[in-house]
């Protein structure tokens, strides 16, 4: 189970609303490499993890991703407060506004709503952990792109924190993959599924 704590993992305090920036940052809420996909990916995959170390890693990183989802929601909430209709029209935020007003909705910047098709839970920890390594790198690239588009230091500071977390998670998942690989039988050259295929009795 989970328990909510009334605090952000890292502070978000944005002075100047900027709906144009919110329109691109929303991708890290509900886009293909966003925090919602990340949390659901790891929290779904953990049931097929073959040892407690990897079960813990997927549980704990999946939980941290929920804290990141809250930080992105907070950035969007603070970037879209007190907007005039003129600001909404001129910033291009009108295409989001028409469906969601200033509510926080998981959608990619292109307008595609969140879908579970953004991630896989394959029931095979070798396949899953390889996806997780790629997912962390893709999220890091998205944060790099947001940093290319954002000038405001109040926005860049929490985005830089989130970018750094992707790098740490990549490192930790690399250790998990190495651990699962080392658990395989030495004759298992093609890396069969250690959570499903059983070794035949002699």
């Amino acid at each position: 189970m989970w328990q909510y704590e009334k605090k952000l993992q890292y502070p978000v305090n944005i002075k100047n609303p900027n709906p144009a920036l919110a329109k691109v940052i929303v991708s890290q809420l509900g886009g293909p490499d966003g925090e919602l996909a990340a949390s659901l990916r790891y929290l779904s995959q953990r049931f097929a993890a073959p040892c407690r170390e990897v079960q813990a890693m997927l549980t704990d990183i999946g939980t941290e991703e929920l804290a990141h989802l809250e930080m992105i929601g907070t950035i969007l909430y603070q970037l879209t407060r007190n907007l005039s209709m003129k600001e909404i029209k001129e910033s291009g935020f009108d295409t989001y506004f028409v469906d969601h007003t200033t509510g926080i909705y998981p959608v990619a910047a292109s307008g595609v709503p969140f879908t579970a098709a953004y991630f896989e839970s394959k029931g095979d920890p070798i396949a899953d952990l390889n996806e997780d390594l790629a997912a962390e790198q893709k999220a890091r690239v998205t944060y790099d792109n947001i940093l290319r588009l954002a000038d405001d230091p109040d926005v860049r500071d929490p985005i830089k924190f989130l970018r750094e977390r992707e790098i740490v998670h990549y490192q930790r998942f690399g250790e998990s993959l190495r651990q699962v690989t080392e658990m395989l039988d030495s004759k298992n050259f093609y890396a069969f599924n250690p959570s499903f295929d059983k070794k035949k009795p002699k």
Binding site: K7, P11, A56, M57, D60, E175, Q179
Partner: peptide, 23 residues
């Protein structure tokens, strides 16, 4: 005070993930 809590919780979160793979 909240900043100090966040710093402390961050150290714990980092140690938690590290200890998951180095128990």
């Amino acid at each position: 005070l909240m900043r100090r809590i966040q710093q402390s919780c961050f150290a714990l979160a980092e140690a938690n993930l590290y200890l998951d793979s180095h128990p």
